[in-house]
Simulated assay, not measured.
Amino acid sequence: MHSFSLYFLTYYYCVMQGGHVEAVIANMTALQKHVAFFDRNNDGIITTSEMFEGYVAIGCDAAFSRATASSISAGVGPKTSPADAPSPHLSVYIEYIHKAMHGSDTGAYDAKGRSAPEKEWGLIYKLASDEEGFLHRDSVRGIYDGSVFFKLEKQRTSFRSDV
């Protein structure tokens, strides 16, 4: 029996902190944690619009965010959608994210979605490095468990409220 409510009772609980809902994720693989940031309403399903919002929240421009969200949804959505998911299968289901892994992946996650910290860089360097161009250890670790996305969004929100 496939039940998302059971999934969330097991994996998610939310804590209100200063008016911002922060997902506290237990028993998830690193890969699930990595993508959970983009699940903006914490329902276990990442829509294209949620993915777009997530990329904008971490500092990507709208054009990049739209293109990336569309391509990821088209490529990953069908692989992670359960048989009973509504068509078109463009939403990414966190529970099944491991099914989207393929041979040309960076190897940052193993077949079960656990992290292999010695792999993966790119966009995160641009977004998470400091003013001197250094990417700190906690940011690197945060790439794998998704915590760096929450940190980047908080920094951007703080910066906008200071202006």
Rank of each mutant, 00 (worst) to 15 (best):
D43T: 12
Y11N: 13
S158Q: 14
A23D: 01
K33G: 13
A30D: 15
S158N: 13
E50G: 05
W121V: 07
Q155T: 12
V15W: 09
M51T: 06
T48M: 12
S129T: 13
A62G: 07
E53R: 09
I124K: 00
H89V: 05
A111P: 11
L6N: 11
S5F: 00
L123W: 04
E153R: 13
T48F: 00
S65V: 05
T47A: 12
S65A: 15
K119E: 09
M101P: 02
I25F: 06
D145F: 00
H20Q: 15
F38A: 08
M101G: 04
S70E: 11
H34Q: 07
T47M: 04
T48W: 01
K154W: 08
F52K: 07
F38K: 02
F38S: 11
S5R: 13
M16F: 09
R160V: 08
L127F: 10
I97Q: 03
E120N: 03
R160S: 14
Q155W: 06
H98S: 11
A23P: 15
R156K: 14
S91W: 02
F4P: 05
V56W: 04
A128M: 03
A26T: 01
P86I: 12
G44L: 00
L135S: 01
A62W: 05
M28G: 10
L127I: 04
L123G: 12
G77W: 00
V56R: 15
T157I: 15
L123M: 15
H34T: 07
P117Y: 04
N41I: 10
I45Y: 01
